[in-house]
């Protein structure tokens, strides 16, 4: 069936655009019904920017998408945290993504050895900003009790870390606590990179 092309006409009706600086600026988030209403007295751009940051940080903190860089025992405890009993879905971080392009929180669960270190770096580089890193367990934090010829002595040799979780392996509650702490940190807007 031939499709006729409609010139200069969109399916979605657009309002005529307003040149920047002319009309009162609104935030990106609009409440229902607000779009038709003029916002009075909130003209200061700086005020709205701050507000926006808070809203965005709030959203980011509540929907972390973890990428489990699971190499060893900690990955099994990570699985426990994701699965039915501990259920990280309660805190909005259950969308586990194995593609770095779709994740914003890298949980390094397990020992990082010299052979996989470049891979860790590469995957970290592939994640879009903003991105956060949790070093789960003693090995990721400091090499743990593997003070050995093939073990990275803490992943902060390679990537910046936001949260360190103690334990060998940490309990699922411990990891969950770290995620909640990270969430607080994000919501306070502390993380700048």
């Amino acid at each position: 069936m031939p499709v006729s092309k409609v010139e200069n006409e969109s399916i979605i009706a657009r309002k005529p655009g307003v040149a920047p600086g002319e009309g009162p600026e609104k935030g990106l988030i609009t409440l229902p019904g607000e779009s038709d209403r003029e916002v009075e007295g909130l003209g200061g751009a700086s005020y709205i920017t701050t507000k926006l940051d808070q809203v965005v940080n709030w959203a980011r903190g509540n929907s972390l998408w973890p990428l489990p860089f699971g190499t060893a025992c900690c990955a099994i405890e990570f699985m426990s945290m994701v699965s039915s009993h501990y259920d990280i879905a309660r805190f909005g971080a259950e969308v586990v993504r194995f593609s770095p392009r779709q994740a914003d929180l890298m949980i390094v669960a397990g020992t990082i050895v010299d052979k996989i270190a470049p891979v860790l770096k590469k995957i970290y580089d592939q994640m879009p900003e903003p991105k956060y890193v949790i070093a789960m367990g003693a090995c990721a934090t400091s090499g743990g009790f593997y003070r050995a010829y093939h073990v990275v002595q803490g992943i902060d040799e390679i990537v910046p870390v936001d949260m360190w979780v103690p334990g060998c392996p940490p309990t699922p509650d411990g990891l969950m606590y770290a995620i909640l702490k990270l969430k607080e940190k994000i919501e306070r807007g502390e993380i700048r990179r």
Partner: peptide, 11 residues
């Protein structure tokens, strides 16, 4: 393999 060689025997 070897991406988790943690040197068990040497340790």
């Amino acid at each position: 393999i070897g991406y988790l060689h943690r040197c068990f025997e040497k340790m």
